[in-house]
Simulated assay, not measured.
Amino acid sequence: MLRRLFLAPVHLYRYTFSAVLGRTCRHLPTCSEYMIEAVERHGIWPGGWMGFARICRCRPGGSAGLDFVCEELPKAARWYTPWRYGLWRGTHVPARLREPGS
């Protein structure tokens, strides 16, 4: 119930502003899809911070391209250091999609 309430503004954005403005996200999946998946996978607190960090990266001069929600929470992240949940630069690429040697 709380997750639905937390994600209501994201859904509202997706079906109103985003539909009118067109798809302008620099990433795949889009920032709204990323936020929804992060909250559903990791919960409101860590997922919300991950989504916020992603929105901060989606700007001119920021990152672009494939960027997936991480499969596990970062080891250094704690509830009292929420900024460590988000990736503030670059993109998440699952190990199975990385090129060997990178």
Score class of each variant (00 low, 15 high):
1 M>C: 10
2 L>I: 09
2 L>W: 12
2 L>H: 13
2 L>S: 12
3 R>V: 07
3 R>M: 05
4 R>L: 14
4 R>D: 14
5 L>A: 13
6 F>P: 13
7 L>S: 13
8 A>R: 12
9 P>E: 14
9 P>H: 15
10 V>C: 10
10 V>F: 06
13 Y>H: 02
13 Y>K: 03
14 R>M: 11
15 Y>H: 13
17 F>A: 14
17 F>Q: 09
18 S>Q: 11
23 R>L: 03
24 T>P: 00
24 T>A: 10
27 H>K: 02
27 H>N: 00
27 H>A: 03
28 L>W: 08
28 L>D: 10
29 P>D: 05
30 T>Q: 04
33 E>F: 00
33 E>H: 05
34 Y>M: 01
35 M>R: 01
41 R>T: 08
42 H>S: 04
43 G>I: 00
43 G>L: 03
44 I>P: 06
45 W>R: 04
45 W>I: 00
45 W>G: 00
46 P>M: 05
46 P>E: 04
47 G>D: 00
47 G>P: 01
48 G>V: 01
50 M>R: 06
50 M>A: 01
51 G>Q: 04
52 F>E: 01
53 A>K: 07
57 R>L: 06
58 C>D: 12
58 C>F: 07
58 C>A: 08
59 R>Y: 05
62 G>C: 10
64 A>V: 02
64 A>Y: 15
64 A>E: 10
64 A>F: 15
65 G>P: 11
66 L>A: 13
67 D>G: 11
67 D>Y: 14
70 C>M: 15
72 E>D: 13
72 E>N: 09
76 A>W: 08
77 A>P: 08
78 R>G: 12
79 W>N: 14
80 Y>H: 15
81 T>C: 02
82 P>K: 09
83 W>H: 11
83 W>G: 06
84 R>Y: 06
85 Y>G: 10
85 Y>A: 02
86 G>F: 08
86 G>C: 07
88 W>H: 14
90 G>Y: 07
92 H>L: 05
92 H>Q: 14
93 V>Q: 15
94 P>D: 08
94 P>A: 00
95 A>R: 15
95 A>I: 14
96 R>T: 09
97 L>N: 08
97 L>Y: 14
98 R>K: 15
98 R>L: 12
99 E>C: 07
99 E>L: 15
99 E>W: 14
100 P>V: 02
100 P>Q: 13
100 P>C: 11
101 G>S: 09
101 G>F: 11
102 S>R: 12
